[in-house]
Every structure is written in structure tokens, then in C-alpha cells.
Design a protein around this nucleic acid. Structure first.
Lengths: 132, 132
DNA sequence: CAGCATCCGACACGATACTG
DNA sequence: CAGTATCGTGTCGGATGCTG
């Protein structure tokens, strides 16, 4: 069952005060639970990657989105960026301890979808069939 | 530590074949890890809600996004929609067993942000200070 | 009450081209 | 190699107004 303190955290995130001020953590969650950020963190959980390695590993991502998301993840202290000042330059991305923690939890979520994805797809077809 | 089978699930999600076909589960994850879907599932974990109750509970959401996300969640078999054919009509939303499972895991994630949110904010200011 | 329809702005995202 | 700059498109998401 779900723990009470977790429900409390959820309620805090749901809350909006009388002036319409939302929880300060929402923007952060938005950034990290983006399609690409999740995949990038999962990829880095495998190990440190160069930029081009990540570009290959995370299938379908554009350079723009990759660099953009990496910047956001670095800003939030989840990803460490290490530059080797050679020519051509070598940049290695790795997870910080905080990032490793989060990436592990996100990967649990991913594996949940791996386990239950078929059932979700079945529900979709049932729903669509019932609509028509 | 992260389990091997979880890493395998992650790699499956990262993969793209030679024809550019992405993993079929990605669209589903995109739908469910949306800003609003996460919050709605968390709200429903507290208990079944009417439409207007959800609208109040999930602070800042518009009617449009609420109905749109509820429809998607219902289509994926995560949320059950029950209509009482009275006048005015009463519609109650609740979690299916599958939805309860997922919502619990998402709430774990939310509570992670509750615990580590301060540190993320601190990392942001450090990063911004170093840039200027 | 529980919504759908419509308009509209903002931004996510991709493709392409260019730089240290 | 590791990005940045620019452009164009599509979707997200809010505001408003209307219906059974």
C-alpha cells in the first residue's frame, strides 16, 4: 500500500494557494519527466557517455534536444559534464549521485511499462472498439 | 543498485531500428508521464473523485486538460469512468487495479522530489551563479 | 454538473546549416 | 567532436463560450 508520507508529498504537489501560486517543484518535475530527459537518464545509468554516444544510444533524439536536455539536467545537478580540453574536444556526461538515485527510480518506472505495456495496448483496442 | 532486467527494459525503450521505428511503449509513457496525468493519478490515489472535485484538487488544471487527460487514462485502462444517469449527471472517476499500481509508483517519484527538491533548487542557483 | 468546440499564444521538437 | 543558430511546424495548454 501507499505510505501516508508519500500521499502527503503528492498533496503538496497538487496544492495551489489562493493567489494561484503552484508548488515550486512542479517546473522541475516537468523538466525531468519530459520524454527525452527520462530516456537520457536511463541511458546514462548504463554508464558515462560522450555526446555522440548518447546521440546514438537514445534513438530518435536530435542534437538540439539532446544538448538542451543535458543542459537542464546539469543545471539541476543530476548530470555532471566533464570537458577534456583536447582538439577535438571530448565531453563526457555522467550521473551525479543524486542523478543516479533518480535514474534508478525512473528505470523502475520504465520496466513497469515493459511489464504492463501489453495490457495497456489491449485496453486501448478494447476502448477503441467500444467507441466505434 | 539497479537490477539487470530493469536496465534491459530501459535499453528496449531507448532502441530504434534501422527504419527509425521507435519502441511502441514510448507514446504510452509520453501520455502518462505528462505533467497533468501524473497529478491526476496522484489525486485519484487519495480516492474516487467527481469531475469537479478533481478540477479543484489538481490545482491549476483547466477543464480542457482535465477531460482530455482523463479520456487518455481511461483509454489506457488506468482510470474507470462511472456515469450515474441522473439529472444533472454524476460522473465518478476511480483507479483501476492497474492504475492504482502505477499511481503508487508515480507517487513514490513525487515524494522523491519532495525530499530532494531543495537540493535541486540549490544546484540551480549554483549553476546560474557560475554562469554569470 | 460535466463536458465539448473554438480560438489563440507559447513552446516543444525536428531539419538544416554553421562554428571553435 | 560537440555543440549553437535559425527556421518552420505541430502540439500543448489556457480562456471563453455553449450544450444536455
Amino acid at each position: 500500500m501507499t505510505e501516508p508520507h508519500q500521499l502527503a508529498a503528492a498533496e503538496r504537489l497538487l496544492a495551489v494557494d489562493a493567489f494561484g501560486t503552484k508548488c515550486v517543484f512542479r517546473p522541475i518535475m516537468d523538466q525531468v519527466t519530459t520524454r527525452w530527459a527520462t530516456l537520457i537518464l536511463a541511458a546514462l545509468l548504463i554508464g558515462p557517455h560522450r555526446f555522440s554516444e548518447l546521440h546514438q544510444r537514445v534513438g530518435g533524439i536530435s542534437q538540439k534536444m539532446l544538448s538542451q536536455n543535458l543542459k537542464a539536467l546539469a543545471r539541476n545537478g543530476l548530470v555532471a559534464r566533464e570537458v577534456e580540453p583536447t582538439i577535438p574536444p571530448q565531453v563526457t556526461y555522467s550521473l551525479t549521485p543524486l542523478g543516479t538515485d533518480l535514474a534508478g527510480r525512473l528505470t523502475e518506472l520504465i520496466s513497469w511499462f515493459g511489464r504492463n505495456g501489453e495490457e495497456l495496448l489491449r485496453a486501448q483496442s478494447d476502448y477503441d472498439a467500444a467507441m466505434s
